[in-house]
Amino acid sequence: MRHPLRATLVTAAALAATVAAATPATAEEADPVDLFSGEFALGCRSAATEGTLHWETTPTPDQSPGSVNVAGVLTSNDDARCLRRGLLVFTAYTGMGQERVDYATVTADNVPDGLPFAFSLTNELGTSAAPIDLVQLQVCVDQGPNLPAFACGAPQFFTTTDLEPTD
């Protein structure tokens, strides 16, 4: 059986590789990349994601060092009994969680083949010029009219300390 999340991830990964290849760098200067994946289900509602976090450590003309380029795909169930949306929440921090400097959300309403996404998390709102060193990801599903509106799985944390530069 064809796995739509993986097929769409290949497209998103190819896009991320194309963007990364546009900036030449030696092996010593290459920015680290981390893979993420997650899923959460509540009854007949479910959401899943896979993708990459590209940690920008080398300044470019249009991006300051310390930002994180995020690319991936979000799928949500297509069960007709559960017309609900999947939600991803990415939150960026400096100081290993001491200051929240950016966040982004991605939503998908019943997209079983996957919704590709790509964006950058930056430290433009932070009080210091420190680079982003921690990204938190949560996968959530819409609970409908009940409060709270979304239920989320356990947060996942990604840091620059565990990464090695890529070739």
Results as ranks from 00 to 15, higher is better:
residue 143 Q to V: 10
residue 91 T to E: 14
residue 94 T to G: 06
residue 38 G to Q: 04
residue 9 L to V: 09
residue 126 G to A: 15
residue 70 V to P: 02
residue 113 D to T: 15
residue 137 L to W: 02
residue 63 Q to G: 10
residue 18 T to H: 12
residue 85 R to P: 01
residue 19 V to H: 13
residue 31 D to Q: 09
residue 39 E to C: 05
residue 7 A to R: 10
residue 154 A to S: 15
residue 133 D to S: 09
residue 138 Q to Y: 00
residue 86 G to M: 02
residue 23 T to P: 02
residue 124 E to Y: 07
residue 61 P to M: 06
residue 1 M to H: 10
residue 100 R to A: 10
residue 58 T to I: 10
residue 107 T to Q: 14
residue 145 P to E: 05
residue 63 Q to D: 08
residue 145 P to T: 07
residue 99 E to F: 09
residue 59 P to R: 09
residue 75 T to Q: 08
residue 137 L to M: 10
residue 41 A to P: 03
residue 20 A to I: 07
residue 11 T to P: 01
residue 164 E to I: 11
residue 70 V to M: 08
residue 137 L to A: 08
residue 124 E to P: 01
residue 156 Q to S: 14
residue 46 S to H: 06
residue 104 A to K: 14
residue 34 D to M: 10
residue 56 E to M: 13
residue 142 D to F: 07
residue 92 A to C: 13
residue 108 A to L: 00
residue 61 P to Q: 12
residue 50 E to M: 14
residue 164 E to N: 12
residue 165 P to A: 11
residue 115 L to C: 03
residue 48 A to Y: 00
residue 86 G to R: 00
residue 89 V to T: 07
residue 26 T to R: 09
residue 22 A to F: 13
residue 18 T to N: 10
residue 29 E to Y: 04
residue 94 T to W: 03
residue 113 D to V: 08
residue 30 A to R: 15
residue 112 P to C: 11
residue 101 V to S: 02
residue 52 T to G: 05
residue 11 T to L: 15
residue 25 A to F: 04
residue 59 P to E: 04
residue 147 L to V: 08
residue 13 A to E: 14
residue 87 L to I: 05
residue 29 E to F: 07
residue 35 L to C: 03
residue 69 N to V: 12
residue 70 V to F: 14
residue 119 F to K: 09
residue 69 N to F: 13
residue 4 P to V: 07
residue 26 T to A: 12
residue 83 L to S: 06
residue 81 R to T: 03
residue 12 A to M: 05
residue 2 R to M: 11
residue 68 V to L: 06
residue 42 L to H: 09
residue 107 T to G: 09
residue 101 V to C: 07
residue 42 L to Q: 11
residue 145 P to N: 05
residue 64 S to P: 03
residue 62 D to H: 10
residue 107 T to R: 13
residue 57 T to L: 15
residue 127 T to N: 06
residue 64 S to H: 06
residue 145 P to G: 04
residue 134 L to V: 07
residue 69 N to P: 00
residue 16 A to M: 15
residue 55 W to C: 01
residue 18 T to W: 09
residue 145 P to C: 01
residue 51 G to A: 14
residue 157 F to Y: 15
residue 28 E to R: 09
residue 165 P to S: 09
residue 137 L to C: 10
residue 121 L to K: 06
residue 41 A to D: 06
residue 38 G to E: 00
residue 79 D to F: 05
residue 146 N to V: 11
residue 46 S to W: 03
residue 5 L to Y: 03
residue 98 Q to C: 03
residue 88 L to M: 11
